[in-house]
Nucleic acid binder design. Sequence first.
RNA 1: GGUUCGGUAGCUCAGUUGGAUAGAGCAUCAGCCUUCUAAGCUGAGGGUCAUUGGUUCGAAUCCAAUCCGGAUCACCA
Length: 577
Amino acid sequence: MKGMTIIQMLQKAAIESLQSLYNQPFTEKDFQVSQTKPEFEGNYTVVLFSLTKSLKKSPEALGKELGDELIKNHSHIFSKYNVIKGFLNLTITDDHLLDLLNRNYNDVCFGKHKINGKKIMVEYSSPNTNKPIHLGHLRNNFLGWSVAEILKANGYDVIKSCIVNDRGIHICKSMIAWQKFANGATPQTTNTKGDHFVGEYYVKFNGELKKEVDELKNKGTDEEVAEKQAPIMQQAQAMLLDWEEGKPEVIDLWKKMNGWVYEGFDVTYKRIGSYFDITYYESNTYLLGKDIVKEGLAKGVFFKEEDGSIWIDLTEDGLDKKIVQRRDGTSVYITQDIGLAKQKYEEYKIDKSIYVIGDEQNYHMKVLKLIAEKLDLPNAKNIYHLSYGMVELPSGKMKSREGTVVDADEIIDEMISTAKHHTEELGKVKDFNEHELDDLYETLGLGAMKFYLLRVDPKKRMVFNPEESIDFHGFTGPFVQYTYARIQSVLRKVGQQSTVDSRQSTELLPLEKELILTLEQYSSIIEQAANELNPSVVANYVFDLAKTFNSFYTEHSIANADSEEKKQLRLQIASMT
RNA sequence: GGUUCGGUAGCUCAGUUGGAUAGAGCAUCAGCCUUCUAAGCUGAGGGUCAUUGGUUCGAAUCCAAUCCGGAUCACCA
């Protein structure tokens, strides 16, 4: 019975008992097993209603017979039971829980599954090189990172990837603005983080464009026309053509400015703990897909219009017709993506491909998957779009034009300094040195932020209130510390508590029991999160775990330990993230 | 309009394959405490689970319709 969760064991035991009692076969689908609600006595509950019909017995009688049988055959696991209506509540013996604990508390792989040989690529982050990372990107990063780690824990070989959008008209906009207004300024001369520096010129471009458009409008030009005719826009368009032709001075400028941005991104990524096994650059991949078009035409998946443009007809799948190549022969976004998808399969032989992309691209991803399937790309069915909703502010949507974007670096700084402020006020860290303190604050601040972005179901859009979200009340402090701590370390701590404890009896305290039972769920929660590809399951679970642990932490000997011991514990926690 | 996702406490959100009296944090109120008057402790109040109908022993959960909100429906990426 090793390696099984208590629920699995209970299911198995109940099936055996039912079969010997009533002489007919049962499966785990015939009844339900869940954790007992706190207001009732017991730890696990068998729900019997579904059995009453076929067995023609009252729920109470059935509960009593099954309860007696389970205790008779498994007295080392179940100590007692009670029946309320159709619910059979079973209590797990302390011995069994202690055994669980002793088996697991030194296991560094606790909760992890064996390697299953499957390869998964998780593509996330996808920044543009014309502006810094903002709050929405952070949600993306944390989601992608978490899903990747959850899959790893479930035994998958995970490749983290990132596609950088480093070319196109928007990039040229900041380049033009820099040429016109910077007078040779650089991040170094202005002492600005590279991505912020470039972002400023993107903003400047838009400001200048607005001025020029307004001027044209005053002369009676239509707004749409004015936007196209504005000199600065035409300069940007011209620059894009130069870039595509590979004009050296444009390429040099492009490399220089992107370099600044990457330096800035590096700092932020390091800070939030993101990294990628492979980074794709759109400037390298935007021509991919030309072959795909040929292949699709040959297979009859695509068709050519009279004007030379190439399309796919998806009306049978409930969608529209979609263009895959313009009449001038250049490829569109979707074609590049298919090209990249194909390349990913060819390079890595991945079994599954996960894209962490906002929900405004739901339609696009649906089309992508359909085309991939129709072209018979390998594992096309295993393309999965992990779609997530926008992050909004209490004041409404974030809009870069109106300057209401929450910058990632700023919000991280704010979280960390709030963590510092609160911790100092609580005064529990007087014996920490400066370096240790910085680590601690970083852990606290980032932990709080990760939690508040991850606990919401990805597909829902969410409101992030910087004022309220930086919340270090009550158990949140310890919670934050443990959010990203490895669970087995917590387990070990509890194990030591229980085994090293000077108490004579082996009876568990209610809190210990609760904690062990909560930890017991860990692997099934991780598994569920991997199946649903939903990290919020884990975040909310850890929240519960932390509440339990916090009670334990405050009420137990850790709270009575001298300050050196406390310090060690806190350092250990900080280093576990 | 078509497609699609959402609507749960004053606010932000959980709620497992349909199960017991729908939960948490914040906010509010009461009490505890006070040399710096608390990011602390105990407790309380707060719900038509958008609406209506259906499925059944049993529905926030499944089905249908309606209302409200978001996203999307480009030879942009």
